[in-house]
Design a protein around this nucleic acid. Sequence first.
DNA 1: CTCTTGACGCAAT
DNA 2: CATTGCGCCAAGA
Length: 107
Amino acid sequence: MDKKTFSELVYEIVRMVPEGRATSYGFIARAIGFPTASRRVGKVMGECDLPDLPAHRVVNSQGILSGRDSFGEPDLMQKRLESEGVEVVNHRIKNWKSICWNPLNEI
DNA sequence: CTCTTGACGCAAT
DNA sequence: CATTGCGCCAAGA
């Protein structure tokens, strides 16, 4: 009965990301028990339409806004991040090393 | 079944 | 940081 779909597990982690922070597909994949499924995470995000899902806090391992193109508006993702206090330059999070949030460290 | 593609990751250069 | 090559897994043609 506790059979959650891959997508649900992904959403669960994404919703845990605090403001002013961001996490990567790889971190999420490991957090839900699929250490090598980073690619699937990305595919799920591309399909997600949930308005309450802070997808803008999900980037790749380098802190690059790889999904900015799927937000409908070109720089909506960057706008949202900057709105939370995250500095973004050229589709990349500045100081990513300090901004990245590791769910495995919090759970 | 094979081939391609995808909001990816990582090591080497 | 940019590029290249390889790995990984699922869905569609």
